[in-house]
């Protein structure tokens, strides 16, 4: 990272201060987050690592406006997410965030193109569905239904769907979790391309430490807290990732 400016000097996109999240299931209280302070910067690729139940997904969901913290503050640029209501959060997700999940969550009754169009239709300044699908290397599978695509292809449609609206952030929760190494690489390539070419701030959760080498920063979670943050001197490309 010699040629780029120090990260702290880029504008902060997400900013969390002292956020906690407590789930109550029956009589048990689960402290999913215990005071997390974190900044994510414009254009960076951050990988969130940590064991199951360490709070990564909870944080990602809060950042994406799917969930609200029990206490603490979350801001996205000038938006105070932690104090927003349901309607505002829906609009936030609609226009500014792209999601990719482990299970692709495509609409089975829509083709690849239409799954992407589903999002471009309601976005303000989207790219075309073809463009988004080309970016993830699926220009030849536009009119296939999910049932006709492989797992990796389905996940790449999900990525195309996430980025077609030109989101300001891309949030990926174990995007390769259900894929083998070879198809996983293709998916990571797609995410890498989006991050580099479009400059979309990207946060990616994984269990796989190898993937961490693609990141600008690696944020380690443990027991609902950030344990440490590593800054990578150099980012390896997706092709170099292998597991």
């Amino acid at each position: 990272m010699a040629e780029s400016a120090p990260l702290t000097e880029s504008a902060s996109v997400f900013r969390t201060r002292g956020i906690t999240k407590i789930y109550r299931s029956g009589e048990v209280e689960v402290h999913a987050l215990r005071g997390v302070d974190l900044d994510l910067y414009e254009g960076e690729m951050a990988v969130l690592l940590g064991p199951s139940g360490s709070g990564k997904s909870t944080l990602l969901n809060i950042l994406g406006g799917l969930d609200v913290p029990t206490s603490g503050e979350v801001t996205f640029k000038d938006l105070a997410l932690s104090s927003m209501k349901e309607r505002g959060l829906t609009a936030f997700r609609r226009h500014r965030v792209g999601f990719v999940f482990q299970f692709y969550n495509l609409i089975p009754s829509l083709t690849a193109r239409e799954n992407v169009e589903l999002v471009t239709e309601i976005a303000r300044d989207p790219m075309s569905a073809e463009e988004a699908l080309t970016l993830v290397g699926l220009e030849k599978r536009l009119d296939h239904f999910p049932a006709q695509l492989s797992g990796g292809e389905q996940q790449r449609v999900a990525i195309a769907r996430a980025i077609a609206k030109r989101p300001e952030v891309l949030l990926c929760d174990e995007p390769t979790g259900a894929l083998d190494s070879k198809t996983g690489t293709l998916v990571l390539e797609a995410i890498d391309t989006v991050n580099r070419e479009l400059g979309t701030t990207t946060a990616l959760i994984t269990h796989n430490q190898v993937i961490a080498q693609m990141a600008d920063r690696v944020i380690w979670f443990g027991d609902g807290q950030i344990v440490r943050i590593d800054v990578n001197e150099t980012r390896i490309s997706a092709q170099e990732v292998a597991w």
Partner: peptide, 16 residues
């Protein structure tokens, strides 16, 4: 439910 939840995540409103 899954499909609908996915749509909600993508920013579709309850009405939609």
């Amino acid at each position: 439910g899954r499909e609908l939840a996915s749509l909600r995540v993508l920013g579709f409103t309850r009405g939609e």
